[in-house]
Design a protein around this nucleic acid. Structure first.
Ligand SMILES: [Mn+2]
Ligand SMILES: [Mn+2]
Ligand SMILES: [Mn+2]
Ligand SMILES: [Mn+2]
Lengths: 222, 222
DNA sequence: TCAAATGTTTAGGTAAGACTAACATATTAA
DNA sequence: TTAATATGTTAGTCTTACCTAAACATTTGA
């Protein structure tokens, strides 16, 4: 059976697969904060119900079914976040935790009703792409702000949604998807950078910069 | 801890307490479709966390805390149903099952946000009263249509929401809270009654009549 | 080639809740 | 006032769905 726990593993496997290509027990263990031995157990269970293929000591890979299920949950999660922000008016730093719970209980057709009410959005409130009904996504090839060149205009594409505190801070400073941004200077020693966002100067930590992603299309308009 | 299961027991205890005054193991067992021995076990657990008081072989009664929690879940459930109908446009025969799942995961403040969006409704889509934020409810003293006198006008106050099939049927025949109704005749032998709803003649089974409730204020306006 | 890193197996634990069968108490009807 | 019936509890198990530490196995890469 696909329990809430299995759904969370699916999301994690999918995430790592996108991120780095190969998915390992230790990476899953670290991401999910679950001991490697437990991860192996769950992986075997999931292989048993055809969600992934796996050979001991070797790779972990989602099957077609597993990928479909993973994208389904991702779709739910992101649509729910969008719904909570757009329809219910919740702040964007509150919705990730709430969606983390809702995604395991909302019925398929209610999720689709949300999509309809929202006009089938392509991105969630943090800029992450929402897979379509058939499980197709355009994986975002964004560049982390921490790796972005200095003195080049960029458009914020996405921000990490896991840390509510950081999100609150980013919102306060106008750092959100769609906004133009430029790095003025990087003080590597101090671990901070100076940027301009919508014309205003801001200081951002190295750590925060890792959670902000810039669209790959180099925005060179004035 | 108040698990989903405990929440469901709380609702059941509250329901029986309202219904008939005394709550027993066997009644809970029947209502929840759980064996008496299991019910006793859960009751003891719930007594242990102060949700109810209980003496072996004697009565089961909610404590103040238990009543508060029960009303809180009832509020959630009914607000969620209202939300699903009013804001999301789901049919009223679909929302009970969905709310049964949501009620265990939606955060307090998101529920209150729903209430706000709905304008703090007093009744859910099936006519059941919604407890207020502080746990106050006006228990409805409605009369089952099965016990309602013949040839007297009545206003439908509430319909049972558990049976999706029946709800669909009732909706199709215009039988919903707020509508005026009158029993024309009762064919007790056949187990059916003839009624008029919004001017139209309808046949209703005895069984269905038990699930429809009429407002106690005798409506005698033309 | 062999130590370190990584992954798996084994054996066991927990939490939450359900069940049957045997027993205990209460209720009711003689 | 009994005794049969109904109702409720206890004891002992079971299930599901995880998770864990420790010991063992395999891979990897210096
Ligand atoms: Mn999220
Ligand atoms: Mn989740
Ligand atoms: Mn309901
Ligand atoms: Mn429920």
């Amino acid at each position: 059976m696909i329990t809430a726990s299995v759904e969370n593993y699916l999301k994690a496997v999918y995430y790592l697969q996108e991120e780095s290509g190969d998915v390992s027990t230790s990476k899953l263990s670290e991401l999910l904060k679950i001991r490697p031995a437990s991860v192996t157990g769950m992986i075997k269970k999931m292989a048993g119900i055809n969600l992934l293929v796996y050979q001991p000591y070797r790779t972990i890979k989602l099957t077609a079914k597993g990928r479909r299920e993973a994208l389904k949950i991702l779709r739910r999660h992101r649509l729910i976040e969008s719904f909570l922000v757009e329809i219910m008016g919740l702040p964007w730093n509150r919705v990730h935790q709430e969606a983390e719970k809702w995604e395991h209980v909302v019925s398929d057709d209610v999720v689709e009703r949300m999509a309809q009410l929202l006009g089938n959005p392509k991105h969630d409130p943090h800029g992450a792409p929402i897979p379509n009904k058939h499980g197709a996504v355009t994986p975002s090839k964004n560049i982390s702000l921490a790796e972005f060149p200095v003195a080049v205009d960029g458009i914020i594409a996405e921000v990490d949604d896991k840390n509510a505190e950081l999100l609150r801070y980013l919102a306060q400073n106008g750092i959100r998807p769609g906004v133009r941004l430029r790095i003025i200077s990087v003080e590597a020693a101090g671990g901070v950078m100076t940027i301009t966002v919508a014309g205003k100067k801001r200081i951002l930590s190295e750590k925060a910069a890792h959670k902000v992603y810039i669209s790959p299309r180099v925005g060179k308009q004035p």
